[in-house]
Design a protein around this nucleic acid. Structure first.
Lengths: 187, 187
DNA sequence: TTCTTTTTTTAACAAATGTAAAATGTGAGC
DNA sequence: GCTCACATTTTACATTTGTTAAAAAAAGAA
């Protein structure tokens, strides 16, 4: 198990010692396409790292569902509010393909954060990378038109474009599916 | 200095010992209204905590400036890309009022992260809180109309509404100043 | 295949927001 | 008070995007 973890980018940031410490607490799991891994109305006890497959996070509104995040191999999956505030969250996470995942219990992760300074800083960096990516997307919503956001998504994530339903990509880009269709038809 | 830090919310998360360790590396500084504290095109060597006054972070586009963040007393100010990737960033931070700030050199902060596990976890929590707030704003852009976003801003941050120019608030909410004027005129 | 369901596209119209320019308001300093 | 610079609002019009409904296309299941 320990050796296998080294193939995952996220774990390459950790030394052998830290990786050894983490490896005692993790478990590998697989779930089929369509599984709702994280539910918005629950305190979710697990943190996951995606080994293979893709997933999306979405929030439910009155008459729509907004996809605001996609995960690919190497991404971390967790309920923000469970993880950060120990409260039910606002996001659901659905597996869009059959996935292999590394699972770790949040209580164990927090134990590791408080026991091993290298792991604490590793957790810090994970949050920081997500933060910078999220802030960039927020800024792009103001600077760039929908057509440009689509083009960049297509250029930057061709694999997601192929594998994910366009309706999910539309809401990820902040437009309706009709608008996305129009954008795609233009070029 | 050590005693005084306890009055800042962020530092209440730290034990006396950790606070003592931090206090060796910090300095208090004041700058007048209009100061550009962080510049997008530079690697900025400092991390700040705002004691009093307000600030905004913005990015420059071809023919517009997007304000994407406001800081009030207790907020942390830093260049994301300097802090996280040691590269020039995309954001400028301007002081909108005269401000008192706690200043810490990034190299010292990183030293503390690697020397004191409590401080490492404190840094982790700072990033996580920013992340959850930023992601919520991104989701709100899809779920809520501009009028509703304005109303919530007004309800949640009446102090900013009073003190910040509306043109900055408009771009923070993701609309033009004309649209914001229309929204304000309606009610 | 054939049938059924879901996804994607297209169309017509409505609503929201953007752009540009002018008018008005506000505050600092003389 | 007056003037200047800047912020905000208003107006008219253009453009984008949303909404609804239906058709076409694609994907799954029997």
């Amino acid at each position: 198990m320990h050796q296998e973890l080294k193939h995952i980018d996220l774990f390459k940031l950790l030394s052998d010692d830290a990786l050894q410490a983490v490896s005692h607490y993790i478990k590998e799991v697989s779930y089929p396409k369509g599984t709702i891994l994280i539910r918005a109305d629950k305190i979710e006890p697990y943190f996951y790292i995606l080994k293979s497959g893709i997933a999306r996070a979405y929030s439910d509104g009155e008459n729509q569902q907004i996809t605001f995040w996609f995960g690919e191999s190497g991404s971390v999956l967790f309920s923000f509010n469970s993880y950060i505030n120990n409260m039910p969250g606002y996001e659901n996470i659905e597996l869009l393909e059959g996935c292999n995942l590394i699972q770790i219990r949040l209580t164990d992760l927090f134990y590791l954060y408080n026991a091993n300074i290298e792991i604490a800083n590793w957790g810090r960096k994970i949050a920081e990378q997500e933060l910078i990516a999220t802030e960039r997307r927020l800024i792009d919503r103001s600077f760039k038109g929908a057509a440009e956001r689509y083009q960049e998504f297509a250029d930057h994530s061709p694999s997601l474009l192929r594998r994910v339903a366009l309706k999910h990509i539309a809401s990820y880009l902040g437009v309706t599916q009709v608008t996305l269709s129009r954008i795609r038809a233009e070029k």
